[in-house]
Design a protein around this nucleic acid. Structure first.
Lengths: 125, 125
DNA sequence: ATTTTTGTACGATCTAATTCGTAAGCAATT
DNA sequence: AATTGCTTACGAATTAGATCGTACAAAAAT
């Protein structure tokens, strides 16, 4: 399995690609622009670099290239979360969970979803 | 509230300081050396920069300075988890929680602790 | 047909982070 | 007293990441 560590900016772009499936530079840039001040060519350059790194693939049959993520969301999340659990929470996923829930409160539906997952884990013991 | 953003190397040093309470550059360096190849002056320089940034404090009464973390572990965890939620989970703490619980399973006591926390959150709505 | 828009490519710059070499001071050892 | 070793300070080189300007080509609009 590939061992790549995307930078913060690259993760923002990957998120758009994961969500949309595929997108042009402009489409990605427009999403990023909602939260961020930066030029079009900056996004373009980043995506070109990501292409060189193998983080994304692209279809350049037409003039306007169409990009797709080349790393899975789940895989990337798992890798980075695992690292954080180990590095910052002494290996305890629970400590991370409690920290996350404490500072960023879920709504009722989300609480239900987590509780449901916990019940499944309990049964599986 | 201070807006902290330690780099990865700085985090490694902070972890040692959090664990030991206080330590000299050499003590920190020796811990880092277990997992990492780097020179003593590199660690020294990093800790000097961290001092300038206010990430650590130091007692320089004696020739060998004694360092302590000047940011709390909890606070730093919160910053970094928040960043991860934004960068990797589209702003959803719940998504992070589910990921963490899915790939790193808690035992029964931990499940109970999380469920207790969730019940409190539910009541607080 | 000409102008404007839209796109890629790519070099240049800027900033931050990392790394280390070297100098100088102090302390312990010989 | 001289040597050796440990310490801080600091400058310099290196690397990586992010940003943007400009050039040039293709397509669309006029």
């Amino acid at each position: 399995m590939k061992k790549i560590k995307p930078t913060e900016s690259e993760l923002e772009i990957l998120q758009v690609l994961w969500q949309k499936g595929s997108a042009t530079v402009r489409e990605v840039h427009e999403v990023l622009s909602l939260h961020k001040e930066s030029g079009y060519t900056t996004t373009l350059k980043l995506m070109q670099i990501m292409f060189e790194k193998g983080l994304v693939i692209r279809n350049d049959k037409s003039k306007t290239h169409i990009y797709q993520a080349n790393v899975s969301k789940e895989n990337t999340q798992q890798q980075l979360v695992g690292k954080m659990i180990h590095n910052l929470f002494g290996g305890s996923a629970t400590a991370l969970v409690i920290q996350a829930l404490g500072s960023n409160k879920p709504n009722k539906d989300e609480i239900d979803a987590i509780q449901h997952l916990l019940n499944d884990l309990k049964k599986a013991e």
